[in-house]
Design a protein around this nucleic acid. Structure first.
Lengths: 199, 199
DNA sequence: ATTTTTAATTGACCGTGGTCATTTTTTGGC
DNA sequence: GCCAAAAAATGACCACGGTCAATTAAAAAT
């Protein structure tokens, strides 16, 4: 079937929606994001919103994905960690963003694993790129620093699992003042480091 | 401040709500659960529902938590796995339930880490019990089967992280027919088993 | 230039989760 | 048994996400 490229009016409308939403989030946070406010600010009808985004969550996923891309690029440009304990600090900005807010974290979880279904989801693509980056980090480290008995890709995926774990734990213990990075550290040491007995 | 125990009418009403909800879920699944249907079936007003459950998600969390408790008890009664590869099959029922449905998985994630905040959440308590069980499993295995350079509790928490990871991956690849247990296996081998070089 | 076809937008409308002032029921003191 | 106070239940009401037939604007065909 025929698929025509979107005309420029549509692209402009979409951008207005995104801008309006970004402003609201910047002013009042994700929890306060309301579709009605977005369309009011963007000066379009409600129906237009839903012709551009499948639902409110997709818009949030887009905004969050955008920001995560920015952060990941920044991380990728910084020097790679050269010890296992260097991973935590390197990952700090990413974890800080994902864990800033329950809404953000939930959206991330929900759309992080949509890769195979729709490549439109920024978060999903971002998660794959994260794994790739982690894998390169793991691979460039000497075998006496990072274990070499396990595939770098698997190690990288495991890092991601532990990041999620650390952030999730962060939410359940708001009184506890342990930092996310400190939560992550013991997992990564156990996951990545060469066991003493094997050194 | 004074807090009186609930009168038995209240307890009965609550049970009617739970029963009604359970029936609907059994008949049509979690995705079809509607508060209005629950109160209609339980023959109570809508407001009553919300005096018993903070929101719809809490009701679902309760139902899911109940079922997870049942499954966990069953798992705890079965013989503990005696190899690393035995963990997957032992965890099968639990993973199957959590991954049956996106709604269920989302609720589990959302309420699994609420322990420190409210002990009312079954799922949260269940998650802690899971970790305890996993820790005993790990501890009773010989040091040549499971690594002993890492605390059993940390290993147990890691298992949980990988379970979540495996289920999450399951959702993003519905076309792919790899089983959850098979997804989990490589992680657990790398996480729990003694590296060859150290044997 | 005019008509036809397709894309984009509109806004009244709906479904469903959640609130709260009011009413009914239960309890405990007399 | 009667009455005041606390607990439980009620249902009209609201908020907000999401739908869709109808309208308008743009592009293609004539």
């Amino acid at each position: 079937m025929e698929t025509r490229p979107p005309q420029k009016r549509r692209i402009a409308t979409r951008q207005r929606l995104i801008d309006a939403a970004s402003e609201i989030v910047a002013e009042s946070g994700f929890a306060a994001l309301r579709v009605e406010d977005v369309v009011a600010r963007a000066k379009v009808a409600k129906g237009t919103f839903f012709s551009h985004f499948e639902d409110k969550d997709r818009l949030m996923a887009f905004l969050i994905g955008q920001e995560m891309d920015r952060i990941l690029k920044q991380i990728a440009q910084a020097p790679a960690p050269d010890t296992v304990d260097g991973f935590g600090p390197a990952l700090g900005p990413l974890m800080g963003y994902m864990g800033q807010n329950r809404v953000v974290f939930d959206v991330v979880i929900r759309f992080s694993g949509a890769a195979a279904i729709e490549t439109t989801e920024l978060i999903s693509v971002n998660f794959m790129e994260q794994v790739m980056l982690f894998a390169t980090w793991v691979e460039r480290l000497q075998p006496h620093i990072v274990r070499s008995d396990v595939d770098a890709m698997l190690l990288a995926e495991g890092i991601q699992a532990f990041i999620i774990q650390a952030i999730a734990l962060e939410f359940c213990a708001l009184h506890n003042s342990v930092d996310v990075q400190d939560r992550l550290a013991p997992y990564l040491r156990a996951w990545l480091a060469v066991p003493r007995s094997a050194q």
